[in-house]
Amino acid sequence: MFEAQMAQAALLKQIIESIRELITEATFEVSGTGMMLQAMDSSHVSLVALNLRSDGFQLFRADRPFSMGMNLNHMAKMLKCAGKDDTLTMRADEANDLVTFLFESPGNERLAEFELKLMDITSENLGIPDAEYSATVSMPSAEFQRIVKDLGSIGDTVEITVTKDDVRFAASGDIGNATIKCRQLLDTEKPEDRTLIEMVEPVNLTFALRYLINFSKATSLAPSVTIKLSTEMPVVVEYKLSDIGYVRFYLAPKIED
């Protein structure tokens, strides 16, 4: 038996909206520690890792580890039916191939029950080692979204360069070139407005912009984003979900032959 209750159905809805274009089918692994999902896009260039800790839920019960394969577009269809302030309760048991989403209005006057068919998904799971990264940049998530969208109108790829003084995003295309340089900014009223650059050694990497633009769909989930880079390694783009976990996107770099 699995049962979990979230104060805001809207949170899960936003999470699924932010990843469903990248991965259409995925298996949620449920255990006593929470709900996790790891999946690659169909071209195996990017990977999504979602972690929702059990202590971030209002109620969480998972008698034994349990896998729930879901079509994320179908899941999104159901989650869209939740009211803005509805709570969400998820229920599933091994006896039937269904997960139930219960949406309850704040005054408890409306209770909607949606049952989604579960599916068996065969996917390759990758072990992601904990690594020290050469550079870690934290910046407002809206700023990162603006940068990748702006550069996406100039070129297909972005070259990210981190030095101790700044982080540069550069793109080129048929119409010309663009470089956006962000300096470290610590003296802000709100901590989420900071741009923090931690550099062990300088890095310079190139990535396909369309994936980064896709990752930035998670902007509304967190005020700031953390980008971790090491030479010839996938970049990590992390959105922390307050009090419950994170969504991490990994993207393999473009490499010179």
């Binding site: 690659m40 390759e124 072990g127 473009k254």
Partner: peptide, 14 residues
């Protein structure tokens, strides 16, 4: 031009 690498080149299947 640079070649697009894949995730499996960095992380192993488990």
């Amino acid at each position: 031009a640079a070649r697009q690498s894949r995730m499996a080149a960095f992380f192993r299947a488990v």
